[in-house]
């Protein structure tokens, strides 16, 4: 019995995440058929789109053995930057560019401190989390800033095409772009090389510091883009968006996608699956009316169990 089971298990192991997602979808729809309604499925995608954009963009950072804890405040400050730029009368593309630029600047600062001084990413981005949040609070104050009269701006987050909300398209576009970066440009190989063996990458003539600047900038740019979408979804910008815990959801999605926190192999495409897994679980528990406290516990247990299973599958 076991002898026949083992090869099957080995062949299924790479698809475990897909199977788990399908299994949960089946279970939730059995318990509550409304789960399978198109509105609900679209709702799942819409809910995960912001976390998804950030997770896809952070995948390279985690592949190199790093982490980016500063995404929450970057989300907030970028929304504010876009808001203030628009309020000052600049056209829409400039407003979006300003928001993204703030994010990229934070990411470059992270990358510079990590690459030039060899500081641990967890410390640098933790410090940046604090600095950026403080800056956002100085700039934005405690208030919610209502966005009025910028219809094309609010369309980004609140609009929809063919009945599908814009953020889903944007998540799809960002994911496609990052997957393309990973497979079709040398960046994918350089990132994997650093994660696998940073010493050897340097001795092979790779400019490791340059790659790190790029990937931390990409991670922050993802958070900035998510920040812009969020402000347009809720028609307000505030310094408190991207609250504590955002970065943990993002990291969880990346890690569930099979990227190891200690660096090495990883894939932006699989991060998308990790994001969907989290989305299905959240939505399923909501639709079954599981209280929020129990939801948190169940989510934590599931993440730990999924990672333990992945770890076992490696050996």
């Amino acid at each position: 019995m076991i002898a026949t089971f083992a090869p099957v298990a080995r062949r299924l192991a790479p698809h475990a995440l897909v199977l788990a997602i399908l299994l949960f979808i089946a279970a939730f729809s059995f318990l509550q058929p409304a789960f399978l309604k198109p509105e609900n499925l679209i709702g799942i995608l819409r809910q995960v789109s912001l976390i998804g954009i950030m997770a896809v963009c952070m995948t390279f950072v985690i592949m190199t053995g790093g982490v980016d804890l500063s995404v929450g405040p970057v989300l907030a400050i970028s929304g504010l930057a876009a808001f203030f730029t628009l309020e000052a009368g600049w056209p829409l593309p400039i407003g979006i560019a300003a928001g993204i630029a703030v994010g990229v600047a934070v990411g470059l600062a992270n990358g510079f401190l990590i690459a030039a001084f060899g500081l641990p990413p967890i410390i640098v981005t933790l410090a940046m989390l604090s600095i950026v949040r403080g800056t956002a609070l100085i700039a934005g104050g405690p208030d919610l800033h209502a966005i009025r009269g910028h219809d094309s701006y609010t369309f980004i987050g609140a609009g929809s095409l063919w009945g599908i909300p814009m953020p889903i398209f944007l998540f799809g576009a960002v994911a496609a772009a990052v997957i393309f970066l990973q497979f079709a440009t040398p960046l994918g190989v350089r990132v994997a090389a650093i994660g696998d063996n940073e010493r050897a990458a340097r001795l092979s003539g790779h400019r490791v510091w340059a790659t790190k600047l790029v990937i931390y900038a990409l991670s922050s740019a993802g958070a900035a883009f998510a920040g812009i979408i969020q402000t347009t979804q809720v028609h307000t910008a505030a310094a408190t968006y991207g609250e504590f815990g955002t970065e943990l959801d993002v990291i969880a999605a990346v890690v569930l996608g099979g990227t190891s926190l200690s660096g090495g192999h990883g894939s932006a495409a699989r991060t998308v699956l990790g994001v969907l897994f989290l989305g299905v679980i959240n939505s399923g528990m909501n639709i079954l009316n599981v209280p929020i406290d129990s939801q948190l516990i169940a989510k934590g247990v599931l993440i730990a169990a999924a990672l333990a299973a992945a770890e076992r599958a490696k050996h």
Binding site: A193, N197, R199
Partner: peptide, 23 residues
């Protein structure tokens, strides 16, 4: 320790010092 990316493929290792030529 210093030479190879053991988790990566043989092909990727073989072009590790010449990546720019394939761009």
């Amino acid at each position: 320790r210093d030479g190879l990316m053991l988790g990566m493929s043989v092909a990727e290792n073989l072009v590790m010092t010449t990546l720019a030529r394939f761009v």
